[in-house]
Nucleic acid binder design. Structure first.
Ligand SMILES: [Mn+2]
Ligand SMILES: [Mn+2]
Ligand SMILES: [Mn+2]
Ligand SMILES: [Mn+2]
Lengths: 216, 216
DNA sequence: TAAGTTTTTTAGACTTGTCTAAAAATACAA
DNA sequence: TTGTATTTTTAGACAAGTCTAAAAAACTTA
């Protein structure tokens, strides 16, 4: 239905507009590692196909159709990531690039059966919600550890940074999804956060605390 | 490593050269539903990359590298077909087009783990052998029903025609892989073949007998 | 409001893979 | 062996997606 490139643009625009509303040409270029001029060309094509709202110099937003397509790509991405981790035993830091290819397999029947085969999982290996076959999903109501007060806590439920480096670090510290943590102290000198987990104390940097999400 | 188009050409050349030795430009064009001139262009590129042996007007054959790539694509195709049938409960006539897309997912680690996940199947849903991770597989030693003498028989083990129409017909007649059949008679008027299967008699046309393969 | 800076768009070119039409090579048949 | 039919290759063009360089629009900021 849509080319691989069109799908990648729509997904990028979707992800950027969740964070920031209207999306700029430069933002898209950065997120796809391409040049602004290439983005402008593609934006005209996507607008012609009624997938985005676009007026020159004004930035873009997705139309309803565009958003539907984008959410569907995300559904496919996250289901394949779940498959790779749960069925093929890959680690959570290994699956993104493979899913990046697999998300473009076009059959909806296939993806719906995959969903069923795995028991309709609600979240992917990184804690991100998996849209159902109608594109519905609840938005993650998660907070970074850096945003909760001392002496409060919750369950590790997601990450903001999806890089291998970050995921591998978390795995090593056993800061994985499902673990219960409490913030014991914030060291004012450098904002290091002291966590309690499994009755042990653990020091994490401000950076890590910003990118590790918990459900209260 | 190779583009989707390059992979499709290599697979087509491989399949044609199994049947006929050196492959002609027109054969490739027909098998990929493209034009001879497009094929010529691509042949020059594949030859530059040392994937095929090509001299103008002489037809082509795969180099060792080219053959390795082709066999690997076939491995991926057949493993995904097996997955779709055995894990996602698709029927054998529904999976080819999906596998046609999935065979281009590039990770070897992924395909090897998929292979393991399914218990290293030897044959795909159509009875075709699945190459192992080193590209080894035994060539199907199967004969069309039309080629065996009256009163002999064997086990249905593969098909020569992979079209939905043919596969659906076989399914309906319960002429599926694993069934034991015996040739009772060949009606000389129109070469209809009378089979015995499950203690019942079944008439199949010469065409069907040509495309249904059995192991003796 | 007038520079100056940054962002976005346009112009023109390149690559991959495709096509049609025409030319060249090969095959076949009298 | 010569002429015709078929196959294959070349020439030139096009669409998708990308790039660099330059122009235009939109912001900043004094
Ligand atoms: Mn991912
Ligand atoms: Mn994910
Ligand atoms: Mn197939
Ligand atoms: Mn098959």
């Amino acid at each position: 239905m849509y080319t691989l490139t069109e799908e990648n643009y729509l997904k990028a625009i979707y992800k950027l507009s969740v964070q920031t509303g209207n999306v700029s040409t430069n933002q898209i270029a950065a997120s796809l590692a391409t040049k602004a001029s290439s983005v402008t060309d593609m934006l005209r094509k996507l607008a012609d196909k009624l997938l985005i709202n676009y007026t020159r110099y004004q930035g873009v937003s997705l139309t309803q159709t565009g958003e539907k397509v984008a959410v569907n790509i995300i559904r496919r991405h996250r289901l394949w990531e779940y498959f790779l981790v749960e069925k093929l035993n890959f680690k959570w830091d290994e699956v993104h690039d493979m899913a990046e290819e697999m998300e473009h397999i076009s059959s909806t029947e296939l993806i719906d059966r995959l969903d069923e085969f795995m028991g309709f999982p609600a979240r992917d290996p990184h804690g991100d919600p998996i849209p159902d076959c109608n594109g519905n999903f609840k938005i993650n109501d998660l907070k970074p550890i850096s945003a909760i007060p001392v002496h409060s806590g919750g369950v590790i439920s997601g990450v903001r940074d999806h890089s291998s480096a970050f995921l591998q670090y978390l795995e090593k510290q056993e800061l994985t999804i499902g673990k219960k943590i409490t913030v014991k102290e914030i060291i004012s000198y450098d904002n290091t956060v002291v966590l309690q987990m499994d009755n042990k104390n653990l020091h994490i940097s401000r950076d890590v605390a910003n990118n590790l999400l918990i459900a209260l």
